Computed example of a mutant assay.
Amino acid sequence: MAGFTQSQDLDWSRDGHDWPNSDASRFVRTRRILWHIQEMGDPHAPAIVLVHGTAASTHSFRDLMPRLAARFRVIAFDLPGHGFTEARDTQSLTPGGMADAISGLLRHLDIMPLAAAGHSAGAAVLIRMAQLGGVAPAQIFGLNAALEPIQGNALFQPLARVLFLNPLTPRLLAWRATLGGTDAMLRRATGSEIGTDGARCYARLFASRRHVRAALGMMAHWDLAPLQAALPSLDRELVLIAADDDPMVPASVSTRAAARARSATCIRFATGGHLLHEAEPDKIATLIEERCFSRASPESKDRRSA
Rank of each mutant, 00 (worst) to 15 (best):
M1T: 10
A2Q: 13
A2T: 14
F4N: 08
T5C: 10
S7N: 14
Q8E: 13
D11W: 12
R14A: 14
N21S: 08
D23N: 15
R26T: 12
I33W: 08
W35H: 10
H36K: 04
H36P: 07
E39Q: 13
E39G: 07
M40S: 12
D42F: 10
A45Y: 05
I48R: 05
I48L: 12
I48A: 07
V51A: 14
V51I: 15
V51R: 11
A55N: 12
A56W: 03
H59M: 11
F61D: 04
D63T: 13
L64S: 02
P66C: 09
V74Q: 04
I75L: 15
F77Q: 10
D78F: 04
D78A: 08
G83I: 06
Q91E: 15
L93G: 06
T94A: 09
P95S: 07
G96F: 07
G96P: 08
M98G: 13
A99K: 00
D100T: 12
I102A: 06
L106A: 06
R107V: 11
H108N: 10
I111M: 06
P113N: 05
A115P: 01
A116V: 04
L126Y: 02
I127E: 07
M129N: 03
G133L: 08
G133P: 06
G134M: 05
G134H: 09
G134A: 06
V135W: 02
I140H: 04
N144W: 00
N144I: 01
A145C: 07
A146V: 03
G152D: 07
L155V: 13
F156Q: 10
F156I: 14
Q157E: 08
P158I: 03
A160W: 05
F164M: 12
N166E: 09
P170T: 03
R171L: 14
R176C: 10
T178E: 04
G181W: 05
G181D: 07
T182E: 02
D183Q: 12
D183K: 06
M185R: 15
R187N: 10
E193L: 03
I194W: 00
T196L: 12
A199W: 04
R200P: 02
R200Y: 09
C201W: 02
Y202W: 11
A207G: 11
S208P: 01
R209F: 04
V212F: 02
L216V: 09
M218C: 14
M219P: 05
W222M: 13
W222Y: 15
L224A: 13
A225F: 13
P226I: 09
P232Q: 06
R236N: 08
L238T: 03
L240R: 04
I241F: 01
A243C: 00
D244Q: 13
D246T: 01
P247T: 01
M248Y: 02
M248L: 09
A251F: 09
A251G: 11
R256C: 08
A257Y: 07
A258N: 02
A261Y: 08
A261C: 04
A264V: 02
T265K: 12
I267C: 15
I267Q: 14
R268E: 05
T271W: 00
G273W: 00
H274R: 01
L275I: 00
E278M: 01
I284G: 00
A285G: 05
A296V: 15
S297L: 15
K301F: 12
R304F: 13
R304L: 13
